[in-house]
Design a protein around this nucleic acid. Structure first.
Length: 759
RNA sequence: GGGCGAAUAGCUCAGCGGUUCAGAGCGCCUGCCUUACACGCAGGAUGUCGGGGGUUCGAAUCCCUCUUCGCCCACCA
């Protein structure tokens, strides 16, 4: 009975992967080495500098998609690589409470019951969300297991956990005390569907074909004078106009400054003012000024002490501030009615096609409404400066490099961060108001009475932007603000792997928070990978129905096939194109390779003994160099080259190069040439079978270890079957040493001579 | 409107500071179920390396320009 016979002819990952994963987890192999006790625990002394990755926490209600698959495959390759290299590795998983997204999910569920959150009330609603989160919250983490993610589940966190919430409060209060958090009335982006303010980053700009209406505003007092014509893309806001502005130097209008116009429909007299912010070259050179509904107008209004009339409700319907005829109308309906009315009155001069960038809510795609509102902000300049410096000093680098330019540009032009959200799900803003004496206090502990007058206080009803808490995870997930051993040991981390979409949302803010609260960058490298797209290069998404379910792929071809396919098909920062309608073809590279590898293993196992002679060392039975034939020397030299290539590639984040190097060695060199060459020796038709077995066993063992970070399951299975006693033979390939380059194995002569032979 | 990047076999992409660089995988064609693998083996075809110009003995590889895509930023109403 030879060992290979226990392996089935066709590779079938079903069952095998789950069992292995459970075994790894049970044995604690995902945890840092420094956590482990027993025979596997590190020897005396400090275990060296650890290697730490923070997983971008998926939304707690999310289901695994290919984006997660790609993102976590990359992280797992890096962490497994460093773990094998002997680093004390920690990969921290977690989930994000995802304020708007999660609240939306539960609100939708409520809608199915015919209820709204307002009918439930805040407390009841929040407990409903908690119930939902507790029920479904671990789904995505379980799905990550199927992928083979070797993260430390014992350290898994949730951003609304008590510990992390304490960190959030500490950060808020500290910034508040430093004067970096303030409350103010500004134009913010308002989502009339989610009923909350959004940060600038959350209002995604989208080029939209719209119209530019030229409206006639008649001057008061001079009947024969021509009206002044203003251009606007949002005519409905004219109901809230409180001035018309022109450039101070504009000769066309200079004489009109100081006069009034009669605002049509509203029948109010409003002044014509001069402000340098007006571009005389655009439109008619005259701008209607609506301080409550446009950021630029707000600034102009402030300079000229204009009143701000908010003509919309929070649902973007015309409010009581609008003329009676328009009240209650949706903003788009109001737009039509305004234009109809003005047309009827002969006040529409012309309509032009016009494209402009309109903001949309990043969660629900609703067009945001710029709106005057009281919100909390963080002054970002003081925080941005060190983050910019860290980049300029090379303390944080980006891959691909050019993303660093975007990062720097954003920081250079950073604007204050609107952090309050009118939601119920999230970290409540730790600020209390005393209605008695007007005291406002921010506190690390809940307040029940006013510190000044002793009267009752009420907490701010709003919650914080989700990213306010996720920016802290590099240290809050390690126990900060307490001084924990974890924090001491694992901060700062090393690499942050994520999609470029959240460079500003998350990555930049983590760097700022790390520098502010820990005095150092949370990681030195930011690896930004591409986006998963379909064959038409459209981003995969649920709504387009062009997604691929990684679990489906894993069920068909195994996690290894999925991982090899995405890793080998992706270079730094480029998009990954897959065909959701043809998984067979899309994942053929990984599936074929896994099967090839399996059969390579079967062949080697069925033609070898359990124990082969060592190739190196001072063992008495060691294979002598003189016993090696040319092809033996060649495959050993190629193996050495592959070790060097794969190591260098992993170090440089060129994971595709690493995978292709090992692929070439195993398939093109070992299977196609070496195995064919030694068959006569193995079958006893030629002498030297024992040496051939020793060589093939050795190089296969090396190749399996090189491939393990990319294809963990199949390599573990084969490695266990092949396992040789002696050095390098640990319990699991996960903790087996990464193959070291050995100069003595380099054999240029053998490489040259065999290459000539191949030709 | 600014800034950045990309255009290489049918498809997805490597190669890019000038010497075997015209490659890989998938697909395609012709043979093969040769005792590890048909998710395989052996062999084969396919590209004036987006267009134009330039530097050079020599350019996918450097420079300029055009075209087409993509990304980021932006208060032109």
């Amino acid at each position: 009975m030879t060992r290979g016979e226990s392996l089935s002819p066709q590779y079938d990952p079903t069952g095998l992967e789950t069992a292995l994963y459970e075994k790894w987890e049970r044995e604690g192999l995902f945890r840092p080495r420094s956590d482990r006790t027993g025979p596997d625990s590190p020897p005396d002394g400090p275990p060296g500098r650890p290697y730490v990755i923070m997983m971008p926490p998926p939304n707690v209600t999310a289901e695994l998609h290919m984006g997660h698959g790609l993102n976590n495959a990359i992280q797992d390759v890096l962490i497994r690589f460093e773990r094998m290299r002997g680093r004390d590795t920690l990969w921290v998983p977690g989930t994000d409470h995802a304020g708007i997204a999660t609240q939306n999910v539960v609100e939708k569920l409520l809608a199915n019951e015919g209820k709204t959150r307002f009918e439930l009330g805040r407390e009841e609603f929040v407990s409903r969300v908690w119930a939902h989160v507790k029920e479904t919250g671990s789904t995505i983490l379980d799905q990550l297991r199927a992928l083979g993610a070797s993260c430390d589940w014992q350290r898994a966190y949730f951003t609304l956990d008590e510990d992390l919430s304490r960190a959030v409060r500490e950060v808020f209060v500290t910034l508040y005390e430093k004067g970096l958090i303030y409350r103010g009335k500004y134009i913010i982006n308002w989502c009339p569907r989610c009923l909350t303010a959004l940060s600038n980053e959350e209002a995604e700009r989208e080029e939209t074909e719209g119209k530019l209406w030229h409206l006639r505003y008649p001057l008061t007092g001079g009947r024969d004078e021509p009206p002044i014509v203003v251009a606007t893309t949002r005519p409905e806001t004219m109901l809230g106009d409180t001035a018309v502005a022109v450039h101070p130097e504009d000769p066309r209008y200079r004489d009109l400054v100081g006069r009034d116009v009669l605002l049509p429909l509203a029948d109010r007299a409003i002044p014509i003012i001069a402000d340098a912010a007006v571009d005389p070259k655009f439109g008619t050179g005259a701008v209607k000024v609506t301080p409550a509904h446009d950021p630029l107008d707000f600034e102009i209004g402030r300079r000229h002490q204009l009143p701000a009339i908010d003509v919309m409700t929070d649902r973007a319907e015309m409010s009581d501030a609008a003329p009676l005829a328009f009240r209650g109308l949706d903003r788009l309906e109001a737009r039509r009615r305004v234009i109809d009315e003005l047309t009827r009155l002969g006040l529409v001069e012309k309509v032009e096609a016009h494209h402009s960038a309109v903001g949309r809510c990043y969660r629900c795609d609703t067009v945001v409404e710029p709106r005057l509102s009281d919100q909390w902000f963080v002054s970002m300049r003081p925080l941005a400066e060190p983050a910019l410096q860290a980049y300029r000093d090379g303390k944080v680098r980006f891959l691909p490099e050019h993303r660093g330019l975007e990062y720097a540009l954003w920081l250079e032009n950073i604007r204050d961060w609107c952090i309050s959200r009118q939601l119920w799900w999230g970290h409540r803003i730790p600020v209390w108001y005393c209605d008695g004496c007007g005291q406002v206090a921010s506190s690390r502990t809940d307040l029940t009475q006013c510190g000044r007058c002793g009267g009752p206080v009420r907490q701010d009803p709003d919650v914080l932007d989700t990213w306010f808490s996720s920016q802290l995870v590099p240290f809050s997930s390690l126990g900060w603000p307490d001084h924990t051993p974890d924090l001491e040991r694992f901060y700062p981390g090393d690499v942050l792997v994520t999609a470029p979409e959240i460079l500003f949302f998350w990555v930049a803010r983590m760097i700022m928070a790390g520098l502010e609260f820990r005095g150092g960058e949370p990681f030195h490298t930011v690896y930004l990978h591409g986006t998963v797209r379909d064959t038409q290069h459209r981003k995969m998404s649920k709504s387009l129905g062009n997604g691929i379910d990684p679990l489906d792929v894993i069920a068909r071809y195994g996690a290894d096939a999925l991982r090899y396919t995405v890793v080998s098909g992706l270079s730094v920062g480029t998009d990954l194109i897959l065909d959701p309608d043809d998984l067979e073809t899309s994942f053929a590279p990984g599936r074929n390779f896994a099967n090839k590898l399996w059969n390579l293993g079967r062949f080697i196992l069925s033609n070898g003994e359990a124990r082969v002679r060592p190739l190196a060392g001072d063992h008495p039975d060691v294979v002598r160099r003189s016993e090696l034939t040319l092809v033996d020397r060649w495959i050993i030299a190629r193996c050495e080259e592959t070790v060097r290539e794969a190591t260098a590639a992993c170090e440089r984040f060129r994971l595709n190069d690493a995978s292709l190097a090992v692929h070439r060695f195993l398939w093109s060199d070992l299977a196609d040439w070496y195995l064919e060459a030694i068959k006569p020796r193995l079958y006893g038709e030629l002498p030297g079978g024992e040496v051939a077995r020793a060589v093939v066993t050795r190089v296969f063992d090396v190749a399996l270890r090189l491939l393990h970070p990319i294809m963990p399951f199949i390599t573990e299975t084969l490695w266990q079957a092949l396992r040789q006693p002696g050095p390098g033979g640990g319990e699991s390939i996960m903790t087996a040493p990464w193959p070291e380059s050995d100069r003595r194995a380099a054999d240029p002569e053998a490489l040259r001579r065999f290459a000539a032979l191949q030709d």
